[in-house]
Protein backbone atom coordinates (compact mmCIF):
# COMPACT_ATOMS: atom_id res chain seq x y z
CA UNK A 1 0.00 0.00 0.00
CA UNK A 2 1.35 3.38 -0.95
CA UNK A 3 0.59 5.71 1.93
CA UNK A 4 -1.01 9.05 0.98
CA UNK A 5 -2.01 10.12 4.46
CA UNK A 6 -0.66 13.46 5.66
CA UNK A 7 -0.65 14.73 9.24
CA UNK A 8 -3.36 17.32 8.70
CA UNK A 9 -4.54 20.21 6.65
CA UNK A 10 -1.29 22.20 6.98
CA UNK A 11 0.78 19.45 5.38
CA UNK A 12 -2.03 18.92 2.86
CA UNK A 13 -1.80 22.47 1.49
CA UNK A 14 2.02 22.63 1.56
CA UNK A 15 3.38 23.98 -1.74
CA UNK A 16 0.41 26.14 -2.65
CA UNK A 17 1.92 29.47 -3.60
CA UNK A 18 0.83 32.79 -5.07
CA UNK A 19 -0.63 32.84 -8.59
CA UNK A 20 -1.26 29.10 -8.77
CA UNK A 21 -4.31 27.50 -10.40
CA UNK A 22 -6.41 25.40 -8.06
CA UNK A 23 -9.50 23.26 -8.59
CA UNK A 24 -12.15 23.00 -5.89
CA UNK A 25 -14.83 20.31 -5.82
CA UNK A 26 -18.40 21.03 -4.77
CA UNK A 27 -21.73 22.19 -6.14
CA UNK A 28 -23.02 25.22 -4.29
CA UNK A 29 -21.89 24.54 -0.73
CA UNK A 30 -22.42 20.78 -1.06
CA UNK A 31 -19.27 18.67 -1.07
CA UNK A 32 -16.80 21.55 -0.82
CA UNK A 33 -13.34 21.00 0.75
CA UNK A 34 -14.14 23.13 3.81
CA UNK A 35 -10.94 22.41 5.71
CA UNK A 36 -8.57 23.10 2.82
CA UNK A 37 -10.37 26.37 2.04
CA UNK A 38 -10.11 27.50 5.68
CA UNK A 39 -6.38 26.69 5.73
CA UNK A 40 -5.78 28.53 2.44
CA UNK A 41 -7.54 31.59 3.86
CA UNK A 42 -5.20 31.50 6.87
CA UNK A 43 -2.13 30.91 4.70
CA UNK A 44 -2.61 34.29 3.02
CA UNK A 45 -1.78 32.87 -0.41
CA UNK A 46 -2.93 35.26 -3.10
CA UNK A 47 -3.46 35.69 -6.85
CA UNK A 48 -5.19 32.30 -7.15
CA UNK A 49 -7.03 31.17 -10.25
CA UNK A 50 -9.86 28.99 -8.97
CA UNK A 51 -11.68 26.41 -11.06
CA UNK A 52 -14.92 25.64 -9.27
CA UNK A 53 -18.53 25.33 -10.41
CA UNK A 54 -19.59 28.06 -7.98
CA UNK A 55 -17.87 30.73 -5.90
CA UNK A 56 -19.42 30.04 -2.50
CA UNK A 57 -21.52 32.56 -0.58
CA UNK A 58 -20.40 35.75 1.16
CA UNK A 59 -19.27 34.09 4.38
CA UNK A 60 -18.61 30.49 3.40
CA UNK A 61 -16.86 28.33 0.84
CA UNK A 62 -14.72 30.14 -1.71
CA UNK A 63 -16.46 33.34 -0.58
CA UNK A 64 -13.99 33.32 2.33
CA UNK A 65 -11.01 33.47 -0.07
CA UNK A 66 -12.76 36.16 -2.13
CA UNK A 67 -13.37 38.22 0.96
CA UNK A 68 -9.60 38.33 1.64
CA UNK A 69 -8.88 39.22 -2.02
CA UNK A 70 -6.91 36.00 -2.48
CA UNK A 71 -8.57 35.10 -5.80
CA UNK A 72 -7.46 36.73 -9.05
CA UNK A 73 -9.68 34.76 -11.39
CA UNK A 74 -12.69 32.47 -11.12
CA UNK A 75 -13.54 29.83 -13.72
CA UNK A 76 -17.13 28.77 -12.98
CA UNK A 77 -20.51 27.99 -14.51
CA UNK A 78 -22.69 29.88 -12.03
CA UNK A 79 -21.72 32.57 -9.56
CA UNK A 80 -24.93 33.98 -8.09
CA UNK A 81 -25.77 34.41 -4.40
CA UNK A 82 -22.57 36.26 -3.56
CA UNK A 83 -22.55 40.05 -3.06
CA UNK A 84 -18.78 40.41 -2.54
CA UNK A 85 -18.18 38.41 -5.72
CA UNK A 86 -20.49 40.76 -7.63
CA UNK A 87 -18.75 43.83 -6.20
CA UNK A 88 -15.25 42.57 -7.14
CA UNK A 89 -16.41 41.47 -10.59
CA UNK A 90 -18.07 44.78 -11.41
CA UNK A 91 -15.11 46.80 -10.09
CA UNK A 92 -12.72 44.77 -12.25
CA UNK A 93 -10.71 43.43 -9.29
CA UNK A 94 -11.78 39.90 -10.16
CA UNK A 95 -11.49 38.24 -13.54
CA UNK A 96 -14.33 35.80 -14.28
CA UNK A 97 -14.58 33.16 -16.99
CA UNK A 98 -18.03 31.62 -17.24
CA UNK A 99 -18.26 28.26 -18.97
CA UNK A 100 -21.06 25.70 -19.35
CA UNK A 101 -21.34 23.29 -16.45
CA UNK A 102 -20.91 20.17 -18.56
CA UNK A 103 -17.90 21.71 -20.27
CA UNK A 104 -16.38 22.49 -16.87
CA UNK A 105 -16.82 18.86 -15.82
CA UNK A 106 -15.43 17.53 -19.09
CA UNK A 107 -12.37 19.83 -19.07
CA UNK A 108 -11.59 18.38 -15.63
CA UNK A 109 -12.19 14.84 -16.81
CA UNK A 110 -10.05 15.41 -19.91
CA UNK A 111 -7.16 16.54 -17.71
CA UNK A 112 -7.67 13.48 -15.51
CA UNK A 113 -7.89 11.10 -18.46
CA UNK A 114 -5.06 12.46 -20.61
CA UNK A 115 -7.09 14.05 -23.38
CA UNK A 116 -5.73 17.44 -24.51
CA UNK A 117 -9.17 18.64 -25.55
CA UNK A 118 -12.71 17.50 -26.27
CA UNK A 119 -15.41 18.50 -28.74
CA UNK A 120 -18.72 19.51 -27.19
CA UNK A 121 -21.89 20.89 -28.76
CA UNK A 122 -22.43 23.15 -25.71
CA UNK A 123 -22.04 26.84 -26.47
CA UNK A 124 -21.80 26.53 -30.23
CA UNK A 125 -23.08 29.73 -31.84
CA UNK A 126 -22.83 31.64 -28.53
CA UNK A 127 -20.19 33.96 -27.11
CA UNK A 128 -18.70 30.98 -25.23
CA UNK A 129 -17.43 29.61 -28.56
CA UNK A 130 -15.88 32.89 -29.76
CA UNK A 131 -12.26 32.40 -30.84
CA UNK A 132 -12.43 28.63 -30.41
CA UNK A 133 -12.03 25.94 -33.03
CA UNK A 134 -15.30 24.46 -34.24
CA UNK A 135 -15.91 21.38 -36.34
CA UNK A 136 -18.81 19.54 -37.90
CA UNK A 137 -19.44 15.89 -37.14
CA UNK A 138 -22.40 14.18 -38.83
CA UNK A 139 -24.08 17.47 -39.62
CA UNK A 140 -23.83 18.93 -36.12
CA UNK A 141 -21.43 21.64 -34.94
CA UNK A 142 -19.06 21.22 -32.00
CA UNK A 143 -16.63 23.46 -30.09
CA UNK A 144 -13.12 22.33 -29.13
CA UNK A 145 -12.58 22.81 -25.39
CA UNK A 146 -9.14 22.28 -23.84
CA UNK A 147 -8.31 20.22 -20.75
CA UNK A 148 -7.60 22.31 -17.68
CA UNK A 149 -4.07 22.68 -16.41
CA UNK A 150 -4.02 23.07 -12.65
CA UNK A 151 -1.43 22.92 -9.88
CA UNK A 152 -3.69 21.62 -7.11
CA UNK A 153 -7.10 19.95 -6.94
CA UNK A 154 -8.87 20.14 -3.59
CA UNK A 155 -11.64 17.61 -3.24
CA UNK A 156 -13.89 16.39 -0.46
CA UNK A 157 -15.18 12.84 0.01
CA UNK A 158 -17.29 11.07 2.61
CA UNK A 159 -14.93 8.19 3.42
CA UNK A 160 -11.39 7.42 2.44
CA UNK A 161 -8.33 5.45 3.49
CA UNK A 162 -4.57 6.04 3.64
CA UNK A 163 -4.21 4.51 0.17
CA UNK A 164 -6.17 7.49 -1.13
CA UNK A 165 -9.29 5.52 -2.07
CA UNK A 166 -12.46 7.61 -1.90
CA UNK A 167 -16.20 7.12 -1.50
CA UNK A 168 -18.59 10.05 -1.92
CA UNK A 169 -22.06 10.57 -0.49
CA UNK A 170 -25.20 11.77 -2.27
CA UNK A 171 -24.97 14.80 -4.51
CA UNK A 172 -21.90 15.95 -2.57
CA UNK A 173 -20.08 13.83 -5.17
CA UNK A 174 -20.60 16.33 -8.05
CA UNK A 175 -17.28 17.62 -9.47
CA UNK A 176 -15.08 15.98 -6.84
CA UNK A 177 -14.36 12.69 -8.66
CA UNK A 178 -13.74 14.55 -11.95
CA UNK A 179 -11.07 16.74 -10.34
CA UNK A 180 -9.12 13.84 -8.80
CA UNK A 181 -5.94 13.44 -10.81
CA UNK A 182 -6.81 16.46 -12.95
CA UNK A 183 -4.10 18.62 -11.32
CA UNK A 184 -0.42 18.06 -10.50
CA UNK A 185 -1.34 17.36 -6.88
CA UNK A 186 -4.75 16.16 -5.69
CA UNK A 187 -5.56 16.78 -2.04
CA UNK A 188 -8.52 14.84 -0.69
CA UNK A 189 -10.16 15.61 2.62
CA UNK A 190 -12.65 13.15 4.06
CA UNK A 191 -15.25 13.13 6.82
CA UNK A 192 -14.00 9.75 7.95
CA UNK A 193 -10.57 8.26 7.33
CA UNK A 194 -10.94 4.50 7.87
CA UNK A 195 -8.37 1.71 8.24
CA UNK A 196 -6.90 0.43 5.00
CA UNK A 197 -8.84 -2.71 4.07
CA UNK A 198 -12.07 -1.48 5.59
CA UNK A 199 -13.46 -0.05 2.34
CA UNK A 200 -14.94 -2.66 0.02
CA UNK A 201 -12.93 -2.43 -3.25
CA UNK A 202 -16.21 -2.92 -5.13
CA UNK A 203 -17.63 0.25 -3.65
CA UNK A 204 -14.72 2.65 -4.21
CA UNK A 205 -15.60 5.59 -6.46
CA UNK A 206 -12.07 6.95 -6.96
CA UNK A 207 -9.01 4.68 -6.70
CA UNK A 208 -6.11 6.06 -4.66
CA UNK A 209 -3.86 6.38 -7.73
CA UNK A 210 -5.60 9.71 -8.49
CA UNK A 211 -4.88 11.14 -5.01
CA UNK A 212 -1.54 12.37 -3.66
CA UNK A 213 -2.54 13.55 -0.18
CA UNK A 214 -5.41 12.56 2.09
CA UNK A 215 -6.50 13.66 5.56
CA UNK A 216 -9.55 13.64 7.78
CA UNK A 217 -11.07 17.10 8.10
CA UNK A 218 -11.18 18.44 11.65
CA UNK A 219 -14.83 19.46 11.37
CA UNK A 220 -17.53 19.87 8.75
CA UNK A 221 -20.18 22.55 8.93
CA UNK A 222 -21.95 21.24 5.77
CA UNK A 223 -24.05 24.36 5.41
CA UNK A 224 -27.35 24.12 3.50
CA UNK A 225 -27.88 26.91 0.95
CA UNK A 226 -31.63 26.47 0.29
CA UNK A 227 -33.29 24.57 3.12
CA UNK A 228 -36.53 23.40 1.51
CA UNK A 229 -38.94 21.16 3.39
CA UNK A 230 -42.56 20.03 3.21
CA UNK A 231 -45.09 19.89 6.02
CA UNK A 232 -45.92 16.57 7.60
CA UNK A 233 -49.48 15.57 6.68
Amino acid sequence: MINKQVSGVQEAIAGVSDNMTCMFGGFGLSGIPENAIAALVKSGVTGLTCISNNAGVDDFGLGLLLHQHQIKKMVSSYVGENDEFERQMLSGELDVELIPQGTLAERCRAAQAGFPAVYTPAGYGTEVAEGKETREFDGKMYVLEHAFKADFAFVKAWKGDAAGNLIFKGTARNFNPNMCGAAKITVAEVEELVQVGELDPNQIHIPGIFVQRIFQGEKYEKRIEQRTVRKRE
Binding site: F27, S30, G170, A172, V229
Partner: peptide, 26 residues
Amino acid sequence: NGVLGMGPFPFDGEEDADIINAGKQT
Protein backbone atom coordinates in the same frame (compact mmCIF):
# COMPACT_ATOMS: atom_id res chain seq x y z
CA ASN B 1 -25.76 18.23 -10.10
CA GLY B 2 -25.86 14.43 -9.95
CA VAL B 3 -29.11 12.64 -9.10
CA LEU B 4 -31.62 10.57 -11.03
CA GLY B 5 -34.88 9.64 -9.35
CA MET B 6 -35.56 12.83 -7.40
CA GLY B 7 -38.41 12.75 -4.92
CA PRO B 8 -40.29 15.48 -3.06
CA PHE B 9 -38.76 17.93 -0.58
CA PRO B 10 -37.85 16.29 2.75
CA PHE B 11 -39.95 16.61 5.89
CA ASP B 12 -38.80 19.26 8.31
CA GLY B 13 -35.85 17.86 10.28
CA GLU B 14 -34.97 15.22 7.67
CA GLU B 15 -33.08 17.51 5.29
CA ASP B 16 -29.56 16.40 4.33
CA ALA B 17 -26.83 18.84 3.17
CA ASP B 18 -25.49 16.05 0.94
CA ILE B 19 -28.74 15.60 -1.02
CA ILE B 20 -29.73 18.66 -3.04
CA ASN B 21 -31.01 19.54 -6.52
CA ALA B 22 -29.53 21.90 -9.11
CA GLY B 23 -31.36 24.80 -7.43
CA LYS B 24 -29.37 23.90 -4.25
CA GLN B 25 -32.63 22.95 -2.52
CA THR B 26 -32.74 19.99 -0.15
